[in-house]
Design a protein around this nucleic acid. Structure first.
Lengths: 233, 233
DNA sequence: TTATTTTTTTGACATAAGTCAATGCAGACC
DNA sequence: GGTCTGCATTGACTTATGTCAAAAAAATAA
């Protein structure tokens, strides 16, 4: 497991922990490999541990009674997921499915609880992580209720450009249908809005690569959330 | 502060803690009184501590650039709020304002961090609480994106009937405008939907009191989220 | 390569919900 | 009692976005 030392010490959950604690964590970790489109856990399952993703993409989503899917998160390498029910002692509130061939480390609930009891600093770290997640959700709730789809899309593209540290061409990494679900809409609507934004020279779409042509315009769109305001230019 | 012993030991944040820890907590708490419509903190403020509400109502909300308000939570007596940035060491992600005359206990960040370092079990408790909050947000995101307003309203009414432990007449406790914001909509839409649901004998509205006439119908509405399915009856 | 499946785009249409504006109603206060 | 102010309702209208269906494009497999 020591080959994951670097990765684990970089994850937000354990960043800043002393080396010996990382070693202890690696001792209780179990390697899990998944092929594409595998359900890792489903809503209602017992939360007997959490995961840190090593490679590939994992989507966290909920299903409506009619089967419509709302993606809550998509996690890449180094990101923890499934940690919510570990402490609340309840079941998973959503489903997790791989979007590609995937490898994750699994940390069993009991071992983690023991470790925390012995090392309070780990707990403080994790408290910070959960707080951060909570903050992200706050933003997502705001996006879903306060902004229309063009605004959410613009905000998402700007976040990607920061994450990928690029000011020109960004990479979605996921399909447009999945992006639609992440934004709380459907592929048709997303497609129309993408071409509308391209028509206004805000962006240039090339498959999964999107060139940001007018950062300022996108920021305005992300702020006001109404494409109408931009069209009037 | 000992007069708050009962209350603190009942809050979700500290439930199950041994008495001596509650005593320590009470030592670091500060009483804060607010009149109606006072901003307790605003988005961007430094999170140098969190609150537990003692009496009155506090709303947590975000504002869109145009000033539209999205209420995230409304907290009553015994409920903690503002705990998110205490651990992430960041600023508050939303605003807090009193809806009535209000009293809250304030717990400074540093004192809490010290206490946790000495008593890991407190941290485990708090981890559970944050996890729970996270779970609530997951549901809220689902509601906002997967259900239409009638569905969200029905779900909300059913939750209230459980919280208030009543099967017949429930009390909103807040104005209908505030309820609209909590559901991610506007007063006009809420008004129309309330009368529509009354016309179908699902509920009976008397000011802030709402009589639930057809629990099964409401549950179906909360599930499917589409009032059309009900209308066809 | 060709064939087959999946994803994306486009069009016509239906509808939920927001905007604007006017009116009605209730409690607070003089 | 009357006036005032905030809240709730109603109506006419606009618009964003979902639904359904079909075509086009892209990805994958044979």
């Amino acid at each position: 497991m020591t080959k994951y030392f670097e990765l684990i010490s970089q994850t937000i959950l354990f960043k800043g922990l002393p080396d010996q604690h990382i070693d202890e964590l690696l001792k209780i970790a179990r390697e899990k490999d998944f092929v594409k489109n595998v359900l890792i856990f489903t809503e209602g399952d017992n939360g007997d541990g959490f995961y840190i993703n090593v490679e590939g993409l994992v989507k966290i989503f909920k299903l409506s009674p009619e089967g419509k899917e709302q993606i809550l998160h998509i996690f890449g390498p180094g990101e923890p997921y499934g940690e919510v029910p570990v402490f609340s002692g309840q079941t998973f509130p959503a489903n997790a499915e791989t979007l590609s061939k995937c490898r994750s480390l699994f940390f069993p609930r009991k071992a983690i609880v023991n470790l925390i009891t012995e090392n309070p600093s780990i707990a403080l770290n994790m408290l910070a992580v959960l707080s951060l997640r909570l903050r992200q959700f706050t933003v997502q709730v705001e996006n879903l209720s306060l902004k229309e789809v063009p605004g959410r899309l613009a905000a998402h593209l700007l976040i990607l450009s920061i994450e990928q540290d690029k000011t020109d061409t960004i990479n979605l990494n996921i399909s447009k249908s999945q992006l639609a679900s992440l934004l709380g809409t459907i592929p048709e609507t997303l497609s129309r809005i993408l071409s509308k934004m391209a028509g206004q020279n805000l962006i240039d779409v090339q498959g999964r690569k999107i060139k940001l042509l007018d950062i300022e315009g996108l920021e305005m769109l992300a702020q006001t959330g109404r494409i109408a305001d931009i069209e009037k230019l």
